[in-house]
C-alpha cells in the first residue's frame, strides 16, 4: 500500500496550507495515510516526506513516537482497553483478560480473521466511566464482560455503523474556505497584527 491517491493528495495540500510551516502537517498527514490504508505504509511516509519537504526518516521518526500510528496492518477494529489506575480499580485488567480469552489472542495481536486487534492502553480519559475501552477510538463506557461480548457480536454483525474502519478519525474535517482565511504565513513574514496595534491605541474602537 501506498502513496496518497488523488483525492487524498488534494486533502493533504489543503491541510498543509493551514500551517505556517509544512512540516507541522506531518502528524495530520500520517493520520490521513492511515485513514486511506488502515495503517501507515512506508510508501505513504515517503510521500508525506515529499509533500512537507523532509526526509522519510524524519517522518518515520515522528510517526513511531506516537502510539496511534501502526507501521504494519492491524485489525479492522482496534480495541483499546484501558488498564490504567481508574479502570484498574474497577475491573480494567479483568476486562482485558476477558477480551483476550474471548478473542483468543493476547494484547498487541490481531485475530486470524483480521477483524480485531486488542491493545492494553494507558488512560483514555474516561476515568469516571471505568472500565472503559475504545474501538477505533470510539468510546465504550462502563464495559462489563457481557457488554464486551455484545460489542464484539455487534461488530461482527455490522451493527455498529458509527464505528468506521481503523484509520478514520474524524468523520467531520475542518475546512477553511479561502475567503475566510485570516492570515496563514510563515512566522518570519508575520508582523504585529494591525488590529492589535490600532485597538490598543484607540482603547478598543476598530480603526
Amino acid at each position: 500500500m501506498s502513496r496518497f491517491n488523488e483525492a487524498n493528495e488534494a486533502i493533504a495540500h489543503e491541510i498543509i496550507a493551514r500551517y505556517p510551516r509544512p512540516k507541522s502537517a506531518t502528524i495530520p498527514l500520517c493520520h490521513l495515510a492511515q485513514e486511506q490504508d488502515g495503517y501507515l505504509a512506508e510508501d505513504a511516509m515517503a510521500h508525506i516526506a515529499e509533500l512537507v519537504g523532509i526526509t522519510s526518516a524524519e517522518v518515520m521518526g515522528t510517526a513511531t513516537f506516537y502510539e496511534m500510528f501502526k507501521l504494519a496492518p492491524v485489525g479492522r477494529y482496534v480495541i483499546n482497553i484501558c488498564t490504567n489506575i481508574s479502570c484498574q480499580l474497577v475491573g480494567g485488567e479483568e476486562l482485558l483478560e476477558h477480551a483476550e480469552s474471548t478473542l483468543g489472542i493476547t494484547s498487541g495481536s490481531t485475530t486470524a480473521d483480521g477483524l480485531f486487534t486488542i491493545e492494553d492502553v494507558e488512560c483514555v480519559a474516561a476515568c469516571t466511566e471505568a472500565p472503559a475501552c475504545q474501538v477505533n477510538y470510539r468510546y465504550q463506557h462502563r464495559v462489563t464482560p457481557e457488554a464486551f461480548d455484545t460489542l464484539i457480536a455487534d461488530l461482527r454483525a455490522g451493527r455498529r455503523p458509527e464505528i468506521p474502519d481503523h484509520g478514520t478519525l474524524g468523520a467531520t474535517r475542518q475546512h477553511i474556505s479561502e475567503d475566510r482565511v485570516a492570515n496563514i504565513t510563515p512566522p518570519e513574514q508575520q508582523v504585529e497584527p494591525a488590529w492589535y496595534a490600532a485597538r490598543n491605541a484607540t482603547g478598543g474602537e476598530s480603526a
Binding site: 493551514r18 500520517c30 496511534m68 500510528f69
Partner: peptide, 24 residues
C-alpha cells in the same frame, strides 16, 4: 466568528484544529 474580519470588525484570527496521535 472565526477567520478574517470577525463579526465584521478588523479583528482577524485563524483557529486550526490539530490532531495528536497518542503520547502523554
Amino acid at each position: 466568528l472565526v477567520g478574517a474580519n470577525i463579526l465584521g470588525t478588523d479583528f482577524s484570527v485563524d483557529i486550526v484544529l490539530h490532531w495528536g496521535a497518542g503520547a502523554y
